[in-house]
Nucleic acid binder design. Structure first.
Length: 469
RNA sequence: GGAGGGGUGGCCGAGCGGUUGAAGGCGCCGGUCUUGAAAACCGGAAUCCCGCAAGGGAUCGGGGGUUCAAAUCCCUCCCCCUCCGCCA
């Protein structure tokens, strides 16, 4: 119990639910959801197809807890049946007592019996509540089930989908971005470490302007040409919000957390705008006519990078703080995979306009993030490193986050509310885009050419050179 | 920080401790009327859990308590709002 289950704010007290319609041959069946608590996978589905779930989770982790989950659930249901029989009796007798009293009688024997029964009920309810808590916490730790089109296996099973652009041929040895940036006087890691610690950076002059120009360029592209609506959101959010998108309870060690005096509820710095933007509609029932919703948000992202010690220690690749333009979609289940493809295209367009070579990779089950059913990574070419590096990740989370955050819609035809599907993708990570520009557009003299598409955002400037930057 | 007010169904909003799962309005779905639509009128619909089913249970911000019985009484926590003070 970490405290986030104490109060569920915007969440209905007893989350209701319906599930997403079945997708052909997929793992999510058309069974009604069994979520008397926050679900992530549909408990009823797990109960009815345990072997299928175990198989699906084998390369994703969590398969081991399925049996324990089912045992707890069976126990829970046994006790619920028992306690409900007692409650039915109590309700019946209470009604009889009420009638007797109206007749002027005082059925003290029944009243005493019901008092004893009430104690038994209380004990059983307590036990049930304990079991529910255990089931819930196990359920919250299970990752999403992969989509059937996702290759099974670890990182080595990832599939390259396509490449765009040809890595430039250099007449000299291309330098890594930290050298390019430091020589230009626009990147400063030493001072960042002085101010904070390692894995932070300071951008001077044209570096800072480039970061801002890139952000603006990306936002404008998505707003003006791709139909996204811009949102500005809190960078500190409460625990419920983090649970909603799946960061909590499992990945708390990756988050920066505030300490509030006198047991106040802590807030968490967002690791991505996906968190607040997706949860914008937490606890709401949307109208199908409002869907799909397409949002774009620019925010800084804060990550502890626990467990990444020694990786990418130089440069700006892996930072505790970085800017990102994030795309989020809230859609109906029927359209979510089409929306994933178009989101990917929207992200790719940023790289194309910036003339940065990249490849698209479909992640295998073991490499796909916790919340996601299917993820494409966009890897940009970094000549300074001689390899492709992740610059965007586009995921369809299906109903995983919708269940946790209680985001549903009412079908246009009327009827029960149904969980939406949520998607998110970087469009793009701004810091890494800046890196890519420094490395791909560096010249022999140490200057950096500015891609055409960006020049309008930099007063038409064509290159960044050392002087006075 | 000080002082008050409030959290009820998709939304707004009523609700003497027992026949209230919850009035009324809006919105929604179906129908009548209409060339069509609107208006008007009629009708329908909360959610989750257990159960093969019949049926039963639970839910009025969260948790606890009083009671034979709680949306209604008590305690506690969370959140929102208003006024004053401070302030980017």
């Amino acid at each position: 119990m970490t405290g986030w289950e104490a109060s569920r704010g915007w969440r209905p007290s007893r989350p209701s639910a319906t599930h997403s319609p079945p997708r052909a041959g997929a793992l999510t069946a058309a069974a009604p959801a069994a979520n008397f608590f926050l679900p992530m996978l549909d408990l009823k589905f797990i109960r009815e197809h345990p072997e299928q779930v175990v198989r699906a989770l084998e390369t994703r982790g969590g398969a081991e807890s399925v049996q324990r989950l089912l045992a707890l659930d069976a126990d829970r249901r046994r006790r619920v049946t028992a306690v409900e029989a007692s409650k039915a009796l109590r309700n019946k007798v209470s009604e009889e007592i009420a009638q007797a009293k109206r007749r002027g009688e005082h059925p003290s024997e029944e009243m005493a019996r019901m008092r004893r029964l009430g104690d038994e009920i209380k004990a059983l309810d307590t036990a049930i509540k304990g079991l529910e808590g255990e089931v819930e916490s196990l359920l919250l730790q299970l990752p999403n089930l992969p989509h059937p089109s996702v290759p099974v296996g670890g990182e080595e099973a990832n599939q390259e989908v396509r490449r765009w652009g040809t890595p430039r041929r250099f007449a000299f040895d291309p330098r890594p971005h930290w050298e390019v940036g430091e020589r230009l006087g626009i990147l400063d890691f030493e001072r960042a470490a002085k101010l904070a610690k390692s894995r932070f950076s300071v951008l001077w002059g044209m570096g800072a302007r480039l970061e801002r120009a890139l952000s603006q360029f990306m936002l404008d592209l998505h707003i003006r040409e791709h139909g996204y609506r811009e949102v500005w959101v809190p960078h500190l959010v409460n625990a419920e919000t983090m649970v909603g998108t799946g960061q909590l309870p499992k990945f708390e060690e990756q988050l920066f957390k505030t300490v509030e005096p006198e047991g106040g509820r802590p807030l968490y710095l967002i690791p991505t705008a996906e968190v607040p933007v997706t949860c914008l509609h937490g606890g709401e029932i949307l109208n199908e006519r409002e869907l799909p919703k397409r949002y774009v948000a620019f925010t800084p992202c804060y990550r502890r990078e626990a467990g990444a010690a020694g990786q990418d220690t130089r440069g700006m690749i892996r930072q505790h703080q970085f800017d990102k333009v994030e795309l989020v979609k809230v859609v109906t289940p029927a359209t979510s995979y089409d929306e994933l493809e178009s989101m990917l295209t929207d992200a790719e367009e940023v790289l194309k306009r910036l003339e940065l070579p990249y490849r698209v990779v479909l992640l295998a089950t073991g490499d796909t993030g916790f919340q996601s059913a299917k993820t494409y990574d966009l890897d940009v070419w970094l000549p300074g490193q001689g390899k492709y590096r992740e610059i965007s990740s586009c995921s369809n989370c299906e109903s995983f986050q919708a269940r946790r955050a209680e985001i549903r819609y009412r079908p246009a035809a009327g009827g029960k509310a149904v969980f939406v599907h949520t998607l998110n993708g970087s469009g793009l990570a701004v810091g890494r885009t800046l890196i890519a520009i420094l490395e791909n557009f560096q010249e022999a003299d140490g200057s950096v050419t500015i891609p055409q598409a960006l020049r309008p955002y930099l007063d038409g400037l064509e290159r960044i050179a050392r002087a006075g930057s």
